[in-house]
Amino acid sequence: MSTSTNSPPYHHGDLRRALVDAALVMLEREGEAGLGLRDLARAVGVSPAAPYRHFDSRIALLETLAVIGFQKFTRMMASLQETTPDQKLSAMGRAYVLFALDNANLFRLMFSAQLKREGRPGLKMAADAAFETLQLVSGEGSGGRVAALAAWAKVHGLAVLLLDGQIAIRAGDDTEALIVEILGRNP
């Protein structure tokens, strides 16, 4: 018997995928603090113990979601490879900030202090791949670590300031145009 009143009981198929899909929805709706394995089991319509067959802890689930976020981000950044060199850095910055705004809770989870990359090879690999793609798209290649870090600090700082409401988007503001203008200015 299902403990869920919001969804039909889960009977067959890929339970891990169903758990991850439901967790991504819950994460965006309620944030990381609202995501528990029992609530997730209820949402999918399985027993409270079922998620533990796929995730040994809540942190393991959060790590999986962060990896998915980094993979999604990496694909998005890699798609900018075709941009002309003179527009590449601007396009990268704009895409980074828009990714953060469009995936606020996933973005926050990806960079959460509670998810340390040490001892989590899957998370470290996904985060490193994202940074390597950022480095390549920024035109700095593997030798331009400091330049890529500087670009990353700028776009990440802007994204966090916007997410935290420290930079207000006023009525009538074109968010994308504002992002491009801010990123185009020198400090």
Rank of each mutant, 00 (worst) to 15 (best):
A151S: 15
M92A: 09
A126M: 07
V160L: 13
L65E: 03
E63D: 07
E30W: 11
N103G: 10
E28R: 12
A153F: 03
V160A: 10
V44K: 01
T83W: 04
V46E: 03
W152E: 05
H11Q: 14
G36W: 12
V97G: 05
R75Y: 08
A50Q: 15
T133W: 09
F73A: 05
E181I: 09
I182L: 08
A153I: 03
L178K: 13
M92Y: 07
A171Y: 13
W152N: 07
L65A: 10
T5W: 10
I59G: 10
A18H: 04
F107K: 00
G36V: 13
P121G: 02
M1I: 09
V25Q: 05
M125G: 13
Y96K: 00
G93L: 06
A177L: 06
G122F: 12
N105P: 01
F99L: 01
L158V: 00
K154I: 11
L158A: 00
S4D: 01
S57C: 08
M77Y: 12
D14V: 03
L149M: 13
L161E: 07
L158S: 00
I169H: 07
Q166A: 00
A91W: 04
L162H: 05
I179S: 01
T5H: 13
G172C: 09
E181V: 11
G31T: 08
A150N: 14
D39T: 15
L62C: 05
T83D: 06
R170K: 15
G143T: 08
R38P: 02
D39P: 14
T83M: 08
V137H: 01
L178V: 11
L101Q: 03
E28K: 08
L136H: 11
L109T: 08
G34W: 10
E82V: 15
L178I: 11
F99A: 01
G31A: 04
L27R: 01
P121Y: 04
